[in-house]
Computed example of a mutant assay.
Amino acid sequence: MAPRAKASTETAEPARRSSRISAQPAKVVEAVKETVKKATAPRTKKRSADADEGDGGESAPAVKKVTAPALEPINIGDTLPSYIVKNEKDEDVDVATLAAEKGVILFLVPKADTPGCTQQACGFRDIYPDFASLNFDVYCLSADKPAAQSKWQTKKNLPYPLLSDPQRVLITALGAGEGGKTKRSHFIFEKGGKLVDKKIPVKPVDSPKLALEFVKSLAPSAAEA
């Protein structure tokens, strides 16, 4: 009978261990679950927020806005500064070189291919040969992209280059940029780049005529050049 009692004791032992496990307090189990939940929670949102604050997070690096440096104001007697713009062919043009060989008419429009700007641009187109005969080149300057300028140039058969200044750096230096807009105007530079006349603001129909009148008044010195 003794061996049977020993066997009974050995089989009962696992049941006692199981009872101890199941008797663990419920709050301990919940604590374990909460710890696991926090450890496995996704961290994408936190990294994104940190990156937005500019801490150098790799998942979404902060994007810095690049602003072109400002130019000094250009007044009567000042010369064209060295500043790179794009023409309608998306080529770089240094405005300081525009008046190296001839005088320059630089007329500014608020927006390409709009009624008033088209009237002004076509006015310069129609008397363009007169400016050329007086040893002056004509350029249109606006904040439009080169692609829009090229389309407008083709549409209206504009014979002169169109210059793009999207951040209005040169436009502002000329005194024609205000509140994110371009004031209709024109500026006349003699050979060598010195500003000798400006009209700001000016009406679309008047701009070409007034520019030609002023250039004609310079005819004797222009002919000597």
Rank of each mutant, 00 (worst) to 15 (best):
L195H: 00
I200N: 15
T118D: 08
A173R: 09
A49I: 14
G57R: 10
K65L: 13
K194W: 02
A223V: 10
D130C: 02
K111G: 02
A7Q: 13
G116K: 07
F124M: 05
P208M: 04
R47C: 07
K37E: 15
P166Q: 03
Y128K: 01
P204S: 09
L98D: 01
E190F: 04
P201F: 08
G179L: 07
D90E: 14
K181F: 10
A100Y: 04
D94T: 01
K216Y: 09
D78A: 12
F124H: 03
Y128V: 00
A96M: 05
K216F: 06
G175A: 05
V28E: 15
L162D: 01
K45N: 12
I105Q: 00
A60Y: 11
C122T: 14
E58D: 11
K199E: 09
L80A: 03
S8Y: 11
G103S: 03
S8N: 13
S221M: 12
D52F: 09
A26T: 13
P25N: 07
D165W: 06
D50R: 14
A148R: 10
V63S: 13
A23H: 13
A219S: 14
D206E: 14
P3H: 07
P69W: 11
R168L: 11
K27C: 07
E91H: 05
P208W: 02
Q120E: 15
E58P: 04
P115Q: 01
A219M: 06
I171C: 01
P159W: 02
V29M: 11
R125G: 05
E58C: 01
T114A: 12
D94H: 05
S82I: 06
S18K: 13
E58I: 13
K216H: 09
D92Q: 11
A219Y: 07
T118S: 14
K86N: 12
L80R: 00
E72S: 15
A96G: 01
V28R: 15
S207D: 15
P201L: 05
D165S: 04
S59I: 14
P14N: 09
A222G: 11
A173V: 08
A2H: 11
V205Y: 10
E72G: 06
G180C: 03
L158P: 02
P201Y: 10
K46P: 00
S48F: 08
L162N: 02
K64T: 12
Q120W: 08
D137N: 15
Y83R: 04
C122M: 10
